[in-house]
């Protein structure tokens, strides 16, 4: 099973929603030879025991499932490529996951279809998002609270809004030169 980074992001977002988050911040950052993926939520957070076990492939808090692979897969991917996996979480504070991956490593998972994955997810989710793509030259931000203010009663899942957002994200990715994403 080869998972692209869009898959991992979708999975992390679902974890955050399940942890009753009301706000999720996602940052994708290219810095020198490295690519960073960071997701921070304000959900229930994890205590020490849960943290210790969260990145273990045989641990899950999801009812009815014995194996939760999301975080474990991401950690394994990062470590196999000589990158890093960090998990910060406290009950009442939320959870932050950050991975560093060497951008040019031949086995780095591809970015995948970020607009096709993230825009539908963000538009139909009950959670507020702030999404940042950046490198050392430029940054692109999407903030659902600002967008909702601009849109009033019109939902983010409105077809015109969806295609506008996908287009904007594709442009941002092209600007950043993260071409394989599109």
């Amino acid at each position: 099973m080869v998972e692209d980074l869009a898959f991992h992001l979708a999975d992390l977002v679902e974890n955050a929603i399940r942890a009753n988050a009301s706000f999720v911040e996602i940052e994708l950052r290219r810095e020198g030879p490295d690519f960073f993926l960071r997701l921070r939520d304000d959900g229930v957070g994890m205590d020490e025991e849960a943290r210790r076990r969260a990145a273990d492939p045989f641990f899950t808090t999801k009812p009815g499932r014995r194996i939760g692979l999301g975080l474990a897969l991401l950690r394994q991917t990062a470590e196999e490529l000589g990158g890093e996996f960090r998990l910060n979480s406290q009950p009442g504070w939320g959870t932050e996951v950050e991975v560093r991956l060497p951008w040019a490593h031949p086995d780095r998972p591809p970015l995948g279809d970020l607009p096709g994955t993230l825009i539908p997810l963000i538009a139909t989710s009950p959670v507020e998002f702030r999404l940042v793509f950046r490198d050392d030259r430029t940054a692109w931000t999407l903030d659902t609270r600002e967008m909702k203010q601009a849109l009033g009663e019109v939902p983010l899942s409105h077809p015109e809004v969806l295609s506008f957002l996908e287009g904007e994200m594709r442009k941002a990715l092209a600007d950043l030169g993260w071409k394989e994403a599109g």
């Binding site: 099973m1 998972e3 869009a6 898959f7 979708a10 999975d11 679902e14 399940r18 999801k62 499932r65 939760g68 692979l69 999301g70 279809d113 096709g116 994955t117 539908p120 997810l121 538009a123 139909t124 899942s157 077809p159 969806l162 295609s163």
Partner: peptide
């Protein structure tokens, strides 16, 4: 649309997108 890890792995992303697209 049911997302979640196994749903996403099984193609729920494409499904969500196809539904939004068809509705539009």
């Amino acid at each position: 649309v049911g997302m979640g890890t196994s749903g996403i792995a099984a193609g729920a992303r494409q499904v969500l997108r196809a539904i939004l697209d068809e509705v539009a």
